[in-house]
Amino acid sequence: MSGVFAPAPGRAPMRSVVASQIRMELTLTARRGEAVVLAMGVPLLVLLGAGLTEVTNVPGDDRLAFVVPGVLALTVMSTAFTGQAITTGYERSYGVLKRLGASPLTRPGLLFAKTAAVLGLIVLQLIVLAGVGLAVGWRPHFEAILPALGVTVLATAAYSGLALLMASLLRPEATTGAATLIYVLMLAAGGIMFAAPDLGTFGWFVLPLAAHAEALRQTLSYGGSVPTAIWLSLATWAVVFVTAAARKFRWE
């Protein structure tokens, strides 16, 4: 028998499963496009406010060289961490994730798809913000873009891992509160609008935002390379939180 009702079980190759999930995540992101645009409001305000006026003290003479990379790093955190944590927390409480848990999609598969989708969105946001930066006079070193992308991928993975871990452990309201609080604290202490507290290399390990911002400054603004300690810091954050999320992530 091979009628329309006959079973024909099996799983598509994991690559297609994950690709399908990435498409779904991107579709859902596009559906809440207003939220995505609004999420760029704060970075844009910081860029124009701190970049073009003297409201804050920034190190060096070139304000834009300091501020624009910081704003790019802030955007990565805002989307990969704050936005991701809040959305996933609510998805879990709405039962969206439980449904996926009933499918052949694996936990690492879902985490990868969510991180990849968020990375796609981040690239778009960074292009827009870098464009605004260019328009107001930021002069980046395009030849240093590869290491800048490298640290950005690491930072995205780290934030996304932490976001998914939080969304798994806390109720959605608590996730929203904690994610917003961390965002504000990082914005204050992360060396975006003004210099970060000088904690030396140690600072890069406790403040991933400061580390990422500094790496983008060293490469894009000054045409240099990423300090080894920053590679190490961001890689550690990424490995620790992605692993923790893959272990602790709950579908419901």
Partner: peptide, 21 residues
């Protein structure tokens, strides 16, 4: 693992999914 899971069809009791799809 997921190969096994792919052979099941599951209709959950409380998948109250409010997705925008």
């Amino acid at each position: 693992g997921s190969e096994w899971r792919a052979r099941l069809g599951i209709v959950l009791q409380d998948a109250d999914d409010a997705a925008d799809l």
